[in-house]
Design a protein around this nucleic acid. Sequence first.
RNA 1: GCCCCCAUCGACUAGCGGCCUAGGUCACCACCCUUUCAAGGUGGCUGCACGGGUUCGAAUCCCGUUGGGGGCACCA
Length: 422
Amino acid sequence: MAAPVRVRMAPSPTGFLHIGSVRTFLFNWLFARGRGGECLLRIENTDVSREVAAAVEQIQRSLEWIGIDWDGAATFQLDRIERCQEEAKRLVEDGAAYEEEGAIRFRMPEDGITGWDDAVLGRIEFPNAELEDVVLVRSDGRPTYNFASPVEDWLDEITHVIRGNDHVSNTPKQIQILTALGSALPVYAHVPMINGPDGKPLSKRHGAVSTDEFRDSGYLPEALINFLALLGWAPDGETTIMDRGELVDRFSLDRVGASSATFDYDKLDWLNGVYLRALPPAAYADTLVAYLRERGNDWPEERIREAVPLVQEKIGRLGEFPSFAGFLFHDVEPDPALLERAVLEEAAAALERVDLFESGPIEAALKELCERLGAKPRQVFAPIRVAVTGSKISPGLYESLALLGREAAVARLRSGAAAAAA
RNA sequence: GCCCCCAUCGACUAGCGGCCUAGGUCACCACCCUUUCAAGGUGGCUGCACGGGUUCGAAUCCCGUUGGGGGCACCA
């Protein structure tokens, strides 16, 4: 019987939750959930000055939004400060550590090698001569990260340490400490880092990096999860779209790649569009309304829902809605240079004559108008679109006109004609 | 500087010695559809970093080079 899997997600409470951390946590979570294991949330705050309650709440909110949950309450590294001190004292008594100017240092072996079979990278070995005698406990009594972390892994009976590649060089030190502590060793899996398009660590200048920014832009958690999972991992060479359940079912550490990945915002947009389009209209409407409300938008819900059929097929991010469909909620300011007086006047007249103001009849009327004017559809529709929506890009024209209503549509056409007069 | 890791299309990746004249997806280009932008359909463009080995046979194994990344705190 294999021991039950237990992993931990260990963010630093430094403000916001970085999307790269989310990817690492996602791998932990998928691994644990796929094996009926436990996934703990541990806040790494050995440094008091960085402990910000607000930051922790922020992290938890971000994780909840994206749908990564954890077992039990979040724990704080700082809470085990005394236990760490006791263990350090014990190590000193055992001769495995020693005091120096009030701090306690671990005595690393002078020669030989420390290695492990990384679940992602394979065999890795470090010459012990390279290992420094790391400080376990600072002179002020607080344990350092390289001590607190393994102590907690030991106490929490962590079976798999799945973390970023940047921790590789910490691993041999932690293995030595764990061994001196008398702890069993967890399986280590160092997952690749995520870079920006320039190959440098993903940062603000590349675009969105905090989970909140992605939420704000109108990405769906499901799409983000799907996208992130594919950064450094693939179930096979074909599958791209996978919902949470499938991800949990198919994820495995041995299929995680060893090389770092580049965050491709274009692909994320495409993937988000796929998820957005796949939503049942009612669910899409619910999501859209909730999204807008969260951002302080108070446009009438009824109208927003009516606009859904016009936008669902067109936008890739919920954040595009205000600019894409805003003309349905407020007046527009079309560029006079794009308006055609004669066309707009004719169009206004034609729409006034339409019996039933719905997209079908509107389409018929406008096509008839094209024939009558002897003009190509694009020459006629372009100015109408601009006059009515204020933009060259919009939802389908007939549907937009219908939803806007005869009165408003005609009024915009007329004022557009007037504006074009110049 | 020292240590560690990585290396397939522009990007994410499949590939774990012959199925590869290298497959899928995004992006890009062309065409179709079309009232625009999208979406959708069809087709296309690009890649095994380089040099040595091993082998009947290498994208796949080994060595080196080059390039990239990470780490060398009483930070995490």
